[in-house]
Design a protein around this nucleic acid. Sequence first.
DNA 1: AATAATTTTTAGATTAATCTAAAAATATAA
DNA 2: TTATATTTTTAGATTAATCTAAAAATTATT
Lengths: 218, 218
Amino acid sequence: MITSFTEENYLKSIYHLSPDEGTAVNTNAIAESLNTKAASVTDMLKKLADKEFINYIKYQGVTLTPLGRERALNIIRKHRLWEVFLVEKLNFKWDEVHDLAEELEHIHSDLLINRLDEFLEFPKTDPHGDPIPDKNGKFNVPELIPISKLKNETLGIISGVREHSPLFLKYLEKTGLVLGQEITIKEQIEFDGSFIISIKENDIMISREVAKNLLIAI
Amino acid sequence: MITSFTEENYLKSIYHLSPDEGTAVNTNAIAESLNTKAASVTDMLKKLADKEFINYIKYQGVTLTPLGRERALNIIRKHRLWEVFLVEKLNFKWDEVHDLAEELEHIHSDLLINRLDEFLEFPKTDPHGDPIPDKNGKFNVPELIPISKLKNETLGIISGVREHSPLFLKYLEKTGLVLGQEITIKEQIEFDGSFIISIKENDIMISREVAKNLLIAI
DNA sequence: AATAATTTTTAGATTAATCTAAAAATATAA
DNA sequence: TTATATTTTTAGATTAATCTAAAAATTATT
């Protein structure tokens, strides 16, 4: 079954908005995430339901069918592998690759993406630490915890982000908060929820907002 | 000025159908090359003329404006660089890359394509011997001559093809008629216009049809 | 449980790209 | 040079994706 770029973006959006597999996703949430209107979403949901990519009951939101989930993961796989390519081979920064990957993810060829995977030596994560599904859609969800939930004196390695905006990523880069960096949580300031963490022998302060969006492997 | 995939395919088609810059291209020729109908072409020509990519006079065919030519060459540049990438880095065969490059050529980013160009070490030709325009749209047209126009005892190097169908390319590959291969024209058979050529100490026969589509640098 | 607020869907348009069929213009041939 | 053939354009529909405005359904609140 052929899918248009638009359909693929809807499937991806529904996937990303599902906290777990069974929970239904709202029309409005999809509309917001795709910068479109609820009426447009309803139209597309009917179409995706016809094609058996989603389970759709009027007014009740949607869930992905196994077929829809497979397709969504295939697109996410492509997105993340292209991101690795852009960063590893073409020297893009991690804050520059998202929009390009949004285009590249829609290139329709499993052979191409599997060759790319091989060329990149089967990376397990993308430049933001997000896991890359293998050709069968399987991937490990690493157990990452936001700094905001960690206790003082915890030692860990920066391994992912919850927020992918270029502004946030550039800030992290500038501050040395890059993937793989070891840090220690020193203390939380009660007043505003900000944190003092130590990184490379220095103590630095990060806001609660940053702490919530920086993921650590312990 | 943003261009849709469709508009880009029209520009590319018009470029490829212009034997030289001044000569107008017919509506029907475009329709045939894009597998569409003349009525659809007329509609699109009006649009491209509005956007100042082409000079269009009703019933008189079209030529590219400098802007249209620039855009066409930019797409061709992308197409050919992606083909090099697919062959050199992802181990595709020269008969497998066309359709993929048709998709990849529409990725909108000059930065990406310039980085790719650099990564590939600024190739001058694609896997079929076609020249790759540089970032300013400049390229050398190599002087290539079809075997069918060469005299006996001419020695030359296979450097391009006039026909890009996978069937033809696979045949060439199987027969050892690959880019860079040195050959000598031995004789032409008057009866059917076929040729006997020598390649790696062996004499082989190729049809007139093949001889017309195999380009040689002398 | 009735009312208010919110969410979602329907109805009816719009735009880009396409089509078929018919009309108009151009090119070719008697 | 008139008639015929071919090419191109116009007219009017169609499809995918979108929109606004209004109606319907669901959820929240008194």
